[in-house]
Amino acid sequence: MLGSHLAGLRGGLEAALLLGLLAAWLGRARAAAGAAPVRAGGGRALWGGAAAAAALALLLGWSFTYGARELTPEAGRAAGGVLSVAAAGCVALTVLGPHGRRGGLVGAAGFLVVAREGLATALFVWAAVSAARDEAGSAGPLGMVLLGLAVAALLGWAAHLGVRRLPPARFRAWAGGALLVVAAGVLAQGVRDLQDAGPLGGVLAGRAADLGGAVSPDRWPGALLEGVLNVRPDPSVLQVAAWALYLVPALTLLLAPVGFGRSVPVGVEEQKKTDARTGEGAGSGAGPRGAASAGGGRGGDGADAGGERLHDGPRGAGGRTDGDPR
């Protein structure tokens, strides 16, 4: 029973976290780095892609469980590897790409994120359904799988709410960084799937580390680490290299506007530019009156000066009259 629950948790946690973080990323009207307002259609595209992937996974799982054809483990791993690489690329483009071109991209990201684990989870669900329908079977495994998926959905929703509460100055770095970290794990797992399936089997296939029972997927800590970060007890060298080559440049690009020689946050600078444009517009609208006032001031000064000169003139003339013996 515990194995069925952890299988459902691992299968749904990664997708739930990515969907929750992407929804928070797209739901904010303005990111902390002065991003342009996000289109309202981005969220609909995200959830539409996720729903389409879930429906397709259930349909394929039903066909492979009850149909004449079966999905071989090698084919399943190869498909999962391709979907993982594509999903990691879509997440990176969503976080680092232009803000106004996200509609189709986030829809593809939602589809790929769910489709990556959806097929394997659907096969497990339909197998549990078959066992429950058997006379000697029980509905317990199916219930535990669904419970694991429900817990994963709650954790994804909690991550969504937590990220949305971040202040604007920290939102871009923390939300984008979390998305890229999870996506790096997706990419690493995709590389491992491609190695296990055969296309990349001989490329840097040696074990990079031996974590042993510290991250055993049969226990809660290991299931959470594998579901969130795709940490496995025996990562390969190529898997670790792909993780680092994806995450380090992506985080550098994400944090570059904040971390390289800009003491003032970009959002503050954008607000200052907006205030300056507003002030210039107000100044230009009041230009005639300002010019009139300035002219009036100059005219007043000139009048005062002229008045002073006129006032001094009689005094000077009078002075000359008084002082002139003529």
Rank of each mutant, 00 (worst) to 15 (best):
A78R: 12
V82N: 08
S84H: 15
A86G: 05
A86V: 11
G89D: 00
L96E: 08
G97Q: 13
G100S: 15
R102T: 06
L105C: 04
A108Q: 03
A109I: 09
G110E: 06
F111V: 03
F111I: 03
L112D: 02
V114Q: 01
A115R: 01
A115N: 01
A115K: 01
T121R: 12
A128L: 07
A128P: 06
A128F: 09
A131H: 14
E135K: 07
E135H: 10
A136D: 06
S138T: 14
A139M: 08
P141Y: 15
L146E: 09
L146P: 07
L149T: 05
A153F: 08
L155V: 14
L155W: 08
A158L: 15
A158N: 09
A159R: 02
G162W: 00
R165H: 05
A169M: 08
R170N: 03
R170Y: 00
F171G: 00
A173S: 11
A173Y: 05
W174M: 07
W174H: 09
G177R: 15
L179G: 05
V181S: 09
V182I: 14
L187K: 04
A188N: 06
G190R: 02
V191C: 03
V191P: 02
R192P: 01
D193E: 14
L194M: 11
A205M: 12
A208G: 03
A209R: 07
G213M: 09
A214Y: 14
D218E: 14
G222W: 02
